[in-house]
Each structure stands twice: as structure tokens, then as C-alpha cells.
Simulated assay, not measured.
Amino acid sequence: MTLPPPLATTDLDLGPKYQGKVRDTYDLGDGRLVLVTTDRISAFDHVLRQAIPLKGQVLNRLAAHWFERTGDVAPNHVLSVPDPNVTVGVKCEALPIEFVVRGYLAGHAWRVYRGGGRELCGEALPDGLRESERLPAPILTPATKAEEGHDEDIRRADIVARGLLDQETLDEAAALALALFQRGTEIATERGLLLVDTKYEFGRAPDGRLHVIDEVHTPDSSRYYYAEGYEERLSAGEPQRQLSKEFVREWLMDHGFQGRSGEALPDLPPSFVEEVSARYVELYETVTGESFEPDLSPEPEARIRYALEALS
């Protein structure tokens, strides 16, 4: 498949724009937001210079899939999905905390554990665990949402003590996060996958309820292992087959970059860009069980403008 040009950024005449790491968000001024999921990719809290064709379509469509599958567990912000890259949602007051749920010892948690840490965000970790091993029970490891630089782990008690959230809101969001993780685990199992860890973001909607915002169970917010061969690889101490963007982080680490001061951000070669794009499509098809039919428009922003004309 010939890849279309990447959608690295947008400039739509819709209202005030906020540019995040991946999404361009426009405030329509009437209680609605237009969220354009671009092809930008971030790692170690840095946006890479190369955008990944089709990545935005995969993320937006996969998020829509999961929002629909979890709508009975927690209300979400989705009003419509008028374009492969676009979601129109309810404007919510975002909570300043990311709710990270972990079911396995992987990624950041493993790096902390390997370094001798036996506690993460106040959650105790038993001795003797191996990388990728299933935890006794899923744990919640919240993080502050940094405007710049790295998000920081935070204990639940410190969230309240610092006035970031009141106890009632914290408890409500924590319960929703764990319930969403349980649903995600069940659905992933049906598809031959293990939901390893993920993050959820919540916002207070005008009706006063907490809504899930941003995205749910996508490769940018989640890590999956293939269930087949999991136990054998764990016993042998071999890396798990996984579907996530962790392999992008691993590529960057192999090229001397972990987001630390003084490190130079490397460019992704074209062959690796194509590989990343293919891996995102693979995750979509594996998770949903559906064939991914991309929109190959040579002018994606023009396509988006046309799809959004009815909003004005």
C-alpha cells in the first residue's frame, strides 16, 4: 500500500486552537470541541520530527471503537466521528491527573522495579517478579499531567494533599479507571491479547458527571501482549510479543535518546516510519477483528474541512 502524506498539523478556521502532542483541539464556543488526531508521534514526552502516515486515522477510529464498547461502563465525551481523523466531543473540564492502570510489570513500572523500587505511587510490589509478569491484581499508578517535560508519578494521598483533586472526585475517577481496565481486559482476551497497562483521562462535563476524554485503549495510551506464547516467553525470560508504541521507545533508546537533558532527538528513517505505520494498522485489525480501510486522500486537511462544513 502506498502511504498518503502524513497529517502533521492542521489550521482550521473553527475557533481557538490548542495543539497537544498528538491532537489539535478546536473550541467551537458552544460546549463542543473538535479533536483532530494528527499523525504526530511522541515518546519520552517529546514530539518526534517525523509524522507517521495513517497513525491518526488508526488512533481516532480505534478510540471510537473503544468508546462505543465501554460506554456502559463510563460516560464519554464523543458526540460524533465525522472524519477518520476527527472526533467532535463535549467540552469537559479536564482533571489534572492521568489514571494509569497496570496489570503486568512492564515499561516504566519494570524500570522502577529493576532499579530496586518496590513501591509505585504508594502501591506495593512484591519481591521476585519478572519482567512482563502478571501482577497479583491491577494497580492504579496516577501521574500528574505536565504542560512541558515529563509527567510525574504521584500517590493518591498526595493528589488530595496538594489540592489537585478532592477525595470524592479521586475515588470516583479511580473506580471508573479500574472498571474500564476490567472491560478492556475482557475484550482484549476475546481477541487473543493481554491488556498490559493503559492510561485514562477524565473531565467533568456540564451535567456534572465525569466523562472519559482523549482516548481509550489505543496504542498511544496502552500496551498489549499477544496471549499466545505469553507463558512460554515469560518462563524463558524472553521479550513478549507486543502491540504498542513501546518498540518506538526501544528504537529511540537504541539510538541514545530517552528524553534526558543533553540527548539529541534522532530522526526516524523512512523505512522505520513505514514499519511504525504498519504496526499501528496491525494493532487496529488485531484489536477490532476488522480490516482497516484507510482514507488515502492526498490532501487530508482539505478532506477534514469538507467533513466539518456542517458544524459551522
Rank of each mutant, 00 (worst) to 15 (best):
R69V: 02
H77V: 13
R69A: 14
T38D: 08
A94H: 12
V34Y: 07
L129C: 11
R61F: 08
V78H: 06
P53C: 00
A236N: 05
R241N: 10
R102A: 10
Q19D: 08
S277I: 07
L243T: 02
E152R: 13
T2H: 08
A307K: 13
T189K: 14
Y200K: 05
E172N: 00
Q19G: 10
L105V: 09
G71Q: 14
L59S: 03
V36D: 01
H46C: 04
G89Y: 00
R49L: 01
A177T: 13
L62E: 07
A302F: 03
T87E: 01
A205H: 04
P142G: 03
R40F: 11
P266R: 03
D197F: 12
V248Y: 09
L14N: 09
E133L: 01
P239V: 06
R303A: 15
L252S: 15
L14C: 06
V86M: 07
C92H: 12
V100I: 14
K55R: 05
L265C: 10
A174N: 13
R69F: 00
E98C: 09
K91V: 02
Q57P: 03
L210G: 04
P6M: 09
E190H: 04
E119N: 12
P206C: 06
V160I: 12
P16V: 02
L234G: 05
F247C: 14
T286I: 09
G71S: 15
K245S: 06
K21E: 12
E98R: 15
A146R: 11
Q182N: 12
Y230F: 13
L28F: 10
S42F: 00
L62R: 05
T38R: 12
P136T: 04
G229S: 06
E293V: 09
R69P: 01
E68S: 11
R233F: 07
T141R: 05
L62Y: 11
L252C: 14
P96R: 14
H108I: 06
D13S: 15
G237T: 10
W66V: 00
L170H: 08
E152M: 08
L234V: 05
P16G: 13
A8V: 09
R223L: 00
T25K: 10
H217N: 12
T185C: 03
P219I: 14
N60V: 00
L7S: 06
P84R: 14
S80L: 12
F202V: 10
V276D: 07
P5I: 11
F202N: 12
E147R: 09
A157E: 14
E131G: 02
D166M: 04
P294N: 02
R279W: 00
G56W: 04
A302W: 07
G15A: 04
P5T: 01
H255T: 01
G122N: 02
P126G: 14
R209H: 02
V276T: 13
Q258M: 11
V58E: 01
K21F: 03
G56K: 04
A173S: 01
R69E: 14
R61T: 15
K199T: 06
R49K: 04
G203L: 04
G15L: 06
A177P: 09
L234W: 00
A157R: 13
G237H: 14
L311R: 07
K21S: 13
E301T: 14
P4E: 11
P82Q: 05
T141H: 03
L194H: 08
R305K: 13
S222K: 11
S42C: 02
A157P: 08
